[in-house]
Design a protein around this nucleic acid. Sequence first.
DNA 1: GATCGAATGACAGGTGCCCGTCAATCGTTG
DNA 2: CAACGATTGACGGGCACCTGTCATTCGATC
Lengths: 228, 228
Amino acid sequence: MSRVLVVDDEPQIRRALGINLRARGYDVDLAETGEEGLELAARHHPDVVVLDLGLPGIDGVEVIQGLRGWSQVPVIVLSVREAESDKVAALDAGADDFVTKPFGMDELLARLRAALRRAAPSEEEAVVETPDFTIDLAAKRVVDAAGAEIRLTPTEWHIVEVLVRNGGKLVGQKQLLQEVWGPAYETETNYLRVFMAQVRRKLEPEPGRPRYFFTEPGMGYRFEVAEP
Amino acid sequence: MSRVLVVDDEPQIRRALGINLRARGYDVDLAETGEEGLELAARHHPDVVVLDLGLPGIDGVEVIQGLRGWSQVPVIVLSVREAESDKVAALDAGADDFVTKPFGMDELLARLRAALRRAAPSEEEAVVETPDFTIDLAAKRVVDAAGAEIRLTPTEWHIVEVLVRNGGKLVGQKQLLQEVWGPAYETETNYLRVFMAQVRRKLEPEPGRPRYFFTEPGMGYRFEVAEP
DNA sequence: GATCGAATGACAGGTGCCCGTCAATCGTTG
DNA sequence: CAACGATTGACGGGCACCTGTCATTCGATC
């Protein structure tokens, strides 16, 4: 789950945010001062920061600037101030969002989700490696052990994708047929045999003795990388 | 400069934003309804959208959903409503920020800058070199091996940009069509064939045997610089 | 152990789709 | 009005997919 750093000098706010965020599965760091916040940020690399502007010691805007020196972490600013100039200063310093106290917990949580969603375009490294080939789901590509590309046709790739995304799990024939060819084809088991053979010819070192794409007779197919 | 799309049914708001934004050097599109806004977004690909929630016809939240179907453009929501549930709905639909009317122009401009800054590709070393040409994504320039500039038309450049930014990854036909021409063109595969041919004529040493812009039949295209 | 049926695997021929290419037309801009 | 880029349509070639048939394997039954 995501890690949230809360920087606020008011104990009741820290407490309320700590309870609510942890209840929703976030990991939460609490800091009372700007200095403490910067230190925790450096140590724990939170995914999002909730920052009060009116801090004792160094000001909230300075905290933002301190963060921006080395991090792109989204910052949501809290403030009792209504003054427009404060908002402008905070946003220009690099804040991502601005919430005026008193605020509703639902709104803050929604803004938190929005900030995390923006920051997380990070195409999870969807790569599966085996001793004989490597599958990159994001790039839609397969390379063999020597690094040479293995070309798959659209249908072949689609089958491989479904099986790999369900890695280790059995995928039923009907399910596979529906996902690759559409709901009207759920009885065309011939297709599966033809294309599974093709996939094995291209990926299995011994197509006759599959090491990765296994048949479960009468049920379906399973992709699995054997443990060493 | 950046292009801003403003969607609001109140003439005085449209007028005020139009004047203020243009005075600061933004290119501005003005739309009165959600439908018009979606159409303009598809045609002009703005860098940021300012959207009123209380629209006649289709609702602001639906406009956000319509946009999010194909675009990651930041959306700043305007609303007279104070209700927290509205904010939550808009933010969860994919809005990036929320401003309550009446708002100060300075605050809106600051949030606009913040949204654009977030979306900015962070000015990283956006240069791709190959033995035959060099692409500078930031400067929007291509030069050949001898240092001479290669001129690309806007559409050609847009295609190259999308493919290069996804370097190594396969870009689906629909995705490419949507990002370059807009969501209404996702079936016009002719465009791709014509413009890919044009791009290859200008960049590939042997347009008939591509070394950089590869076709994945039935799926899409991929830009890649071969390892030495 | 022999027989049978069900399910999978293998193979090859035909056909339709997709890509690359060319060319004509339209719309915009200077 | 000239020049350029974008939009279409048409066409040919290659290949991916579909299809039917036959071989093989496995388990059940007698």
